[in-house]
Structures are given as C-alpha cells and as structure tokens.
Amino acid sequence: YIGSKISLISKAEIRYEGILYTIDTENSTVALAKVRSFGTEDRPTDRPIPPRDEVFEYIIFRGSDIKDLTVCE
C-alpha cells in the first residue's frame, strides 16, 4: 500500500487525500505525502472546515485521530 493514493477522514470529520508514505506501527502513526485537505464537506460537525487549496508536503496522523481510511487506487 505504500505509494498508494489514500483518502483519510479524521475524527474532526476533515477529509484528506495523499500518497501513503509510511506506517509506523510502533507509534501508531500514518504519514501521507502531497496531501490535500477537503475540509468537512457535508459531514455533520460542530465546526465546519472549508477545503484548502495548498498541497502539504507531508502530514503525520496519529492512529487515534483517524476515523476512516480508504485506498483510492
């Protein structure tokens, strides 16, 4: 799965898409590269977040912050 395009939804209901870079089982983290944030879209939340235009080089997510993770390709 390393190198695959991943769609990830955080506990804050924010969806991110990026390339799976590393999975650290010891620290329970997932790192994505070339990440875009799509905001909360239409998911119900107390704090709606708009999508962002910039592409983040890397984002490291803690396993406890991840609600859903899907391989896109």
Rank of each mutant, 00 (worst) to 15 (best):
R43F: 07
A12Q: 15
V35G: 06
Y16Q: 08
I59F: 03
E54R: 12
E17Y: 02
E13L: 10
K11H: 06
I19Y: 05
S37W: 01
T22G: 10
L69N: 05
R62A: 14
E54D: 06
A31F: 03
E26A: 06
Y21P: 04
S28T: 08
P51L: 05
D68E: 07
N27Y: 03
R52T: 09
Y21E: 12
D46K: 12
T40L: 04
C72R: 12
A33G: 08
D68L: 11
S28C: 08
S4W: 10
S28F: 08
T25W: 04
I23A: 10
S37L: 08
E54Y: 09
D46F: 09
R43L: 03
E13A: 10
T25S: 14
I9M: 05
F38N: 01
E13C: 07
G63F: 11
A31T: 15
F61L: 08
K11E: 13
N27R: 11
I59C: 13
S7W: 15
F38A: 01
L32V: 08
G63Y: 06
L69Q: 03
T40M: 00
S7M: 15
G63I: 07
G18Q: 02
E73L: 07
A12M: 07
E54L: 05
F38T: 00
S4E: 08
A31L: 12
E41K: 15
A12I: 15
E13V: 01
E41F: 02
G63T: 14
D24W: 03
E41T: 04
Y21H: 09
V55A: 09
I19P: 00
Y58A: 12
R52I: 08
S4H: 09
A31D: 00
V30Y: 08
Y58I: 09
K5E: 07
T22A: 11
D53H: 13
I2M: 11
A12E: 14
V35S: 06
T25E: 14
E13H: 11
V35F: 05
P50N: 05
I66A: 02
P51E: 09
I6T: 04
K67E: 03
I19H: 07
T70L: 05
R36Q: 07
R15T: 05
I60L: 13
L8V: 12
T45P: 03
G63A: 10
K34C: 03
N27F: 08
R52L: 09
A31H: 15
F38W: 02
K34D: 15
I2S: 08
R47Y: 15
R47M: 15
I6F: 09
R43H: 06
I14V: 13
V55P: 11
S64E: 12
T70R: 10
D65L: 02
V71K: 09
R15H: 08
A31Q: 15
D65M: 07
E17C: 05
R47F: 10
R43A: 02
T70F: 03
S4L: 04
V30T: 03
R47E: 13
E26D: 10
T45R: 03
I14Q: 06
T45S: 12
D46W: 05
T70W: 05
K67T: 05
E13M: 15
V30Q: 01
D24A: 06
I49P: 00
T40R: 02
A33M: 11
I66H: 03
G18E: 00
K34F: 07
R43T: 02
S64T: 09
E54N: 06
S64W: 04
V55L: 11
K5W: 04
G63E: 15
E54A: 09
S4A: 12
S64P: 10
E57N: 05
T45F: 08
E54V: 13
T29I: 04
K67H: 00
E41V: 00
P50G: 10
L8W: 04
I60F: 15
I9G: 06
D46I: 04
A31E: 12
I59A: 10
I23D: 03
F38D: 00
A12S: 15
T70A: 06
P48K: 09
T25M: 04
P44S: 11
T70Q: 13
A31W: 09
V30W: 15
I19W: 11
G63S: 14
T70K: 14
S4M: 07
S10D: 15
A12H: 10
G63Q: 15
T29A: 07
D24E: 04
I9V: 06
E26K: 13
D42H: 09
V55C: 09
L32A: 04
N27L: 12
I59N: 03
A31I: 12
V71N: 07
E41Q: 10
V35I: 04
T70S: 09
D46S: 08
N27I: 00
Y58V: 12
P48E: 04
G3K: 05
I60R: 14
R36H: 07
D53L: 07
I49H: 06
L69C: 10
E17V: 11
D46T: 11
L32P: 01
N27K: 07
P51R: 06
S28D: 15
G39Y: 04
